[in-house]
């Protein structure tokens, strides 16, 4: 018999749950909660999707980079070498 997990608990420890950082008995209790709670299933799905979208959108290579850099900035940088 595990301990009771509320929706608040589930959301609070969601990163640890998704990262596999919880103890076995905690995972079991969280799984029991998920099986009975469509709200937390929906929350977890959209939370995971948020992380995926964030990583895609924020990765350093995610946007095409214009070939140019403001000319005055190039000059300023090369000047500062002297």
């Amino acid at each position: 018999m595990g301990f009771d997990v509320t929706c608040r608990d589930f959301v609070r420890f969601l990163d640890d749950y998704l990262a596999g950082a919880l103890a076995t008995e905690q995972v079991a209790a969280f799984n029991d909660h998920l099986a009975a709670c469509p709200s937390c299933v929906s929350y977890m799905k959209t939370y995971r999707e948020t992380i995926r979208l964030g990583k895609l959108a924020l990765a350093p290579t995610s946007e095409p980079v214009p070939d140019d850099i403001p000319e005055d900035l190039v000059r300023a940088i090369l000047q500062s070498r002297k």
């Binding site: 929706c7 608990d9 469509p38 709200s39 937390c40 929906s42 959209t46 999707e49 979208l53 959108a57």
Partner: peptide, 17 residues
């Protein structure tokens, strides 16, 4: 400890950056 409201399902288009 329950959610105040049910979290909506949604999905993003392919180009969501």
């Amino acid at each position: 400890g329950h959610h105040v409201r049910h979290p909506h399902a949604w999905s993003a288009p392919a180009e969501a950056g």
